[in-house]
Nucleic acid binder design. Structure first.
Lengths: 330, 330
DNA sequence: TTCTGGAGTGTTACCGTTCTCATCGCGGTC
DNA sequence: GACCGCGATGAGAACGGTAACACTCCAGAA
């Protein structure tokens, strides 16, 4: 910077003003400085700027180290929105959704001087850990289902999605709908159970017992085999598309045809779920949008004084009808 | 830091020595400083440290903004290895694998002072853009297939994977193997074509024409429909699992049973490909390992003097036999 | 004419570390 | 007993920016 100043025949402060687009610089001076910057191939040193302003223009993301479809799509949504706002994103992942690891991840991000943190928080432990973040650090949780009240959160309306799915199957004429849930200690899984159960109640339908497991096809397969043995099962709502894939295979192996014998609905709308056998009717979640909303919320809270102005953003899911769900055969 | 020094009754320099575990500090003094740090809840300011040392302990990743299975898994591999080595990772994504966007992403990372860059480089344009990175910035490309010679690269041996798949089908007794390729301007796709073709040549089998498309199920479906019309097709090797999913559905809709009428082999070993209908025989790539290797290579090059000591790392894929590939029916 | 105010610029301090070099004891060597 | 070397510590200068303030013009108002 000193070199640029010397070459342009001005003080370093004027160079700084040019960089920061300060209005009170004569046009001719600005040109001279810009030319000097170009000819010296100058790039401002962000570390020095950070030291002086205490703003790093970097945002932290606490991610969950596993290949679940959602979190990854959100990362892209967050990153591209952050880029547009002039921020870079740094990622710290946790192997386990519990207090300690999350605090460590937050600590790493804080040490590196991020201006704010967005945490993938499918379980409440993440949010509570976040409340213990060093004072004044702006945080936003994304995911879960309504977690810590008073904490800024962005999430999908899981119960509404479940209602959509269940209602769809009921409307097709199924007497009731079975549900293969995700891990019940995940609020998202629980909210889907609630939405499903409420819809059945409201319709006066029998509420079958819930079976739960992990979010993957193996779990869906295992529980699908059990459901397949019960001839009264004609409609199954799965907590996500991967589970649905397992159920599809279980039904097939048990000789029950989908959708002729059993209708299946998933949740997530993964990229290729339209190519399952048969193409899966499912509930779409726009993860990229979720990421963008989370970023917008964080940026807003960043600008605010220190006072909390938390806010919850809830994004509505929507039904994607394909052909794995049809009216029951009589 | 000054406060800590004052409280411990030492100079700021001694505090610095304690933080950096310099050996020449009396044990008793160290204890006093550590106690002061704890009681003041002191955290070192990384920005200042970066300014003074010109090392940010941050690594940059240039990612590809799309939900391909591989890159995402690699991110986790890189991140956890980076964490172990004391680095934080920052991510800059590009929407398009061409020169300009990649240079911009690199520039953003450089501005933020990353110590080195790992780029997801499935296409050569990324690597060539990387060679234009500001001098002295350590870079590693991961992915692609042999790209820029002399540029440090980590990749999977795609041709070997293709040979594995093709040989497997040939060994089962299929007279020849058809191939549904990925986009041929991607070296990975091309290498898989080469490995497939070479194996057929070597076995003296007929080499059918290649059909190519994008890496998704839609492309697989479209080309699968065409292959299904040809009754001589008994074995299909797909460039990845998503394409295979589309082929599976196409075969099913055309009334050709997999694996009885047609055997199918994929590539990638995505999490749930064992639950396709039928469970997919495929080629496993360990993306997390790839990420770890890339990081190790980068760290090594980081330590080196300025002289380039590039090196290529090639990871071997392996066959995962499931039940979508069986001997042909005679 | 003198005062006022703002545009344009420079001066100096400061952000929180690390680095270089100097200082001070102290035990061992000749 | 003078000298040397080394362990333990401190003082001050970087590192590359930004913030606060001072200063100089010069136009317009009193």
């Amino acid at each position: 910077m000193r070199d640029v100043a010397k070459l342009a025949g001005v003080s370093h402060q004027t160079v700084s003003r040019v960089i920061n687009e300060h209005p009170n610089v004569r046009a001719e001076t600005r040109e001279r400085v810009l030319a000097a910057m170009r000819s010296l191939n100058y790039r401002r040193n962000l570390a020095a700027r950070t030291l002086a302003t205490r703003e790093s223009h970097t945002l932290g993301i606490v991610g969950f180290e596993t290949t679940l479809f959602g979190p990854e799509s959100m990362l892209y949504g967050i990153e591209s929105a952050a880029r547009a706002a002039g921020y870079l994103v740094s990622v710290a992942t946790v192997r386990e959704l519990s207090h300690r690891p999350v605090l460590e991840a937050v600590d790493r991000l804080v040490q590196h001087g991020v201006d704010g943190i967005i945490a993938i928080a499918p379980k409440p432990a993440v949010t509570t850990a976040l409340t213990h973040a060093p004072g004044g650090m702006a945080c936003v949780a994304v995911g879960g289902d309504g977690g810590q009240p008073g904490f800024p959160t962005v999430r999908v309306d899981n119960a509404a999605g479940a209602r959509l799915a269940t209602r769809h199957l009921l409307d097709l004429g199924h007497p009731t709908v079975h549900h293969v849930a995700g891990p019940l200690d995940w609020p998202e899984a629980q909210a889907r159970v609630d939405g499903w159960r409420d819809t059945l109640y409201a319709a006066g339908a029998v509420v079958p017992p819930v079976t739960a497991g992990w979010w993957d096809a193996a779990a869906g397969y295992e529980q699908g085999r059990r459901l397949a043995e019960d001839p009264s099962v004609t409609a199954v709502f799965c907590a996500n598309d991967r589970i649905a894939l397992g159920v599809l295979r279980a039904m097939h192996e048990s000789g029950r045809c989908v959708p002729d014998d059993v209708s299946v609905v998933g949740f997530d709308d993964m990229p290729d779920s339209g190519y399952f056998l048969p193409p899966l009717t499912t509930i779409h979640q726009d993860f990229a949008e979720l990421g963008r909303r989370a970023l917008a919320l964080l940026l807003r809270n960043l600008g605010l004084p220190d006072g909390d102005a938390p806010e919850d953003v809830v994004v509505a899911p929507r039904l994607i009808p394909r052909i794995s769900a049809v009216p029951p055969r009589r």
